[in-house]
Simulated scan of single mutants.
Amino acid sequence: MASRSFGRITVTTPDLDDPGLYLSLVETLENPRGIVQDFAYGDADLRSLALTGVQLITGRVSDVRAERVRFESLNLHGVEIIGSELGSLHWSEGRLTRVHFRDCRLMGATLDGVVLDDVLFEECRLDYATVRKVRAGGPVAFVGCAFTEGTFTDCDLSGAVFSDCGLRLTEFGGGRYRGVDLRGSDLSRIRGVANLAEVRIDPGQHADLAQALVGELGITIGDD
Results as ranks from 00 to 15, higher is better:
97 T>Y: 08
25 L>C: 08
53 G>T: 01
54 V>M: 05
209 L>Y: 03
181 D>A: 06
184 G>E: 02
209 L>F: 06
89 L>G: 08
39 F>Y: 12
156 D>P: 09
127 D>Y: 08
197 A>N: 12
125 R>H: 14
89 L>W: 08
108 G>Q: 14
178 R>S: 06
198 E>F: 01
108 G>V: 14
34 G>D: 09
209 L>C: 06
155 C>A: 11
82 I>H: 10
172 F>Y: 08
37 Q>S: 05
64 V>F: 15
196 L>Y: 02
7 G>S: 09
44 A>I: 03
111 L>S: 05
40 A>E: 12
157 L>P: 06
47 R>H: 10
124 C>D: 04
32 P>A: 05
53 G>K: 06
39 F>R: 03
57 I>T: 01
45 D>W: 08
41 Y>K: 07
98 R>T: 09
78 G>P: 05
193 V>N: 02
135 R>Q: 13
102 R>E: 13
106 L>F: 01
210 A>E: 13
153 T>P: 00
197 A>G: 13
104 C>E: 04
176 R>W: 08
220 T>F: 10
150 G>F: 10
36 V>K: 15
193 V>R: 03
204 G>V: 05
16 L>F: 12
33 R>S: 09
142 F>L: 06
207 A>T: 12
222 G>W: 06
118 D>F: 12
70 R>L: 11
125 R>F: 07
8 R>E: 13
109 A>H: 01
116 L>Q: 04
93 E>C: 13
11 V>F: 03
44 A>E: 09
8 R>Y: 08
213 L>G: 01
95 R>V: 09
214 V>F: 15
167 L>E: 03
165 C>R: 05
59 G>M: 02
122 E>P: 15
159 G>H: 12
11 V>D: 03
114 V>M: 03
68 R>V: 11
81 I>L: 12
60 R>A: 02
15 D>F: 11
219 I>Y: 03
125 R>E: 06
67 E>M: 05
99 V>M: 01
